[in-house]
C-alpha cells in the first residue's frame, strides 16, 4: 500500500479522475438513455465508441490530411480541426446508433421478443462491429496525431491543469448540461420521457414510438461519439478492442449512478473515475478492477437500483 502518493498527488489524482470520469459519463449516456426508454441494455454501445475513436482519426488524418507525425496546430486551424473531428465522430456514432437500433432492436420490438432476444442481437451486432474493425485494421493500434500541443495552464496543489484535461472537463459539463436541458425542457425530450414512463400511454398521446426510440439511440450515439473524440485526443491511440474496457467502465458508471437516470450517470462517472485513480495509485494497478467491482457489488447490495436509481417498487419488470 502506497499512502505516500496521497500526500503529493492527491489533487492530481482527483483531477485526472474527474477528466476520465467525464469520458465515462459521456459513454454511459449511450447506455442510460436507451435503458430509460426501452428498459433494455444497448450492449453495442461499446463498439459505437470504438468506431467513434477511428472516426476521429479518419477525420484528422484521412479527411483533413494531418500526418501522424505532423506538428501541432495552432489558432483557427487547430480549433477548426478539433471541432470538425468532434462533430464528425458524433455524427458517425449518432448514425451508427440509429443503425444499431434498426438492425438489432426494431424488428424484435415489433415481434414482441423477450429481453433475452434483444440482449443477444445487441451482443451479436457488437461482435460484428468489433471483428470487422479488427480485420480491416489488421488488429494494429492506430496512433492519432498530436494536433493539440499539451501545454499547461499551471499547477494548483500538484494538479496539472493541462489543456486536454481542462478541455474534456469543460466540454463534458457543456454536453451534459445541454442534454439535461434537452430532455427536461424540449418537446422531443418530453416525448422521450413520456415513452420512458409508459409506452402504451405515450402512443395514445400520439407520440411516434419508433421515432422517439431512433432519436434516443441517435442522442446516445452523439454523446458516445463525443467521448470517443475526447478519448482519442487525450490518449492519442486506439485499437479495435478499445471499446471493451471503456464500455465496461461506462456500463458500470450507469449502473452505479442508477441506470436510466441522467444525473445518476454523471455522479456515477465522477465516482468511478476518481475511485479507479486512487485504487490504482494506493493499492497498485493490479487491484483496480477488484476494488471497483467490490464497490459496485456493495452499492448494489445497499441500493439495488444504483445510487440515484428508481426505487425498486417503481421498476418495471
Amino acid at each position: 500500500m502506497n499512502l505516500q502518493v496521497l500526500e503529493s498527488q492527491f489533487w492530481s489524482l482527483c483531477l485526472q479522475g474527474v477528466a476520465l470520469g467525464f469520458i465515462y459519463v459521456l459513454i454511459s449516456l449511450g447506455y442510460t438513455m436507451v435503458y430509460g426508454v426501452l428498459r433494455l441494455i444497448n450492449f453495442a454501445n461499446s463498439e459505437v465508441f470504438m468506431i467513434g475513436t477511428f472516426a476521429t482519426v479518419v477525420a484528422q488524418v484521412g479527411i483533413l490530411q494531418n500526418q501522424t507525425d505532423s506538428q501541432s496546430l495552432h489558432g483557427f486551424r487547430l480549433i477548426y480541426t478539433l471541432a470538425f473531428a468532434l462533430v464528425f465522430s458524433m455524427v458517425v456514432c449518432g448514425i451508427l446508433g440509429i443503425l444499431v437500433e434498426l438492425v438489432a432492436y426494431r424488428r424484435l420490438r415489433a415481434l414482441g421478443a423477450k429481453p433475452l432476444g434483444f440482449l443477444i442481437s445487441a451482443i451479436a451486432t457488437s461482435i460484428v462491429l468489433l471483428e470487422t474493425t479488427r480485420i480491416v485494421t489488421f488488429s494494429r493500434p492506430q496512433t492519432s496525431p498530436r494536433l493539440l500541443d499539451k501545454w499547461s495552464f499551471g499547477e494548483v496543489a500538484g494538479a496539472n491543469f493541462r489543456i486536454d484535461t481542462v478541455m474534456v472537463i469543460i466540454s463534458g459539463v457543456i454536453i451534459f448540461f445541454v442534454l439535461d436541458r434537452f430532455v427536461t425542457k424540449t418537446r422531443l425530450g418530453k416525448a422521450i420521457r413520456a415513452v420512458s414512463m409508459s409506452e402504451e400511454n405515450s402512443k395514445l398521446m400520439g407520440i411516434n414510438l419508433n421515432r422517439v426510440v431512433s432519436l434516443t439511440f441517435f442522442i446516445g450515439g452523439l454523446t458516445t461519439g463525443a467521448a470517443a473524440f475526447f478519448y482519442t485526443t487525450v490518449y492519442e491511440t486506439t485499437q479495435f478492442n478499445v471499446g471493451f474496457n471503456l464500455g465496461l467502465a461506462a456500463f458500470t458508471t450507469a449502473v452505479l449512478g442508477g441506470i436510466g437516470n441522467l444525473r445518476g450517470a454523471f455522479y456515477g462517472g465522477m465516482f468511478l473515475g476518481v475511485l479507479e485513480q486512487f485504487a490504482s495509485a494506493i493499492l497498485g494497478s493490479q487491484w483496480k478492477s477488484v476494488t471497483v467491482f467490490t464497490v459496485l457489488v456493495l452499492v448494489l447490495l445497499l441500493k439495488p437500483n444504483g445510487i440515484f436509481g428508481e426505487a425498486v417498487q417503481q421498476t418495471r419488470t
Binding site: 502518493v5 479507479e276 486512487f278
Partner: peptide, 13 residues
C-alpha cells in the same frame, strides 16, 4: 490500460 495517470503519480512521488 491506456490511462497511466496513477502509475505516473507514483513515479513522481
Amino acid at each position: 490500460t491506456t490511462d497511466f495517470a496513477p502509475t505516473i503519480a507514483k513515479i513522481k512521488t
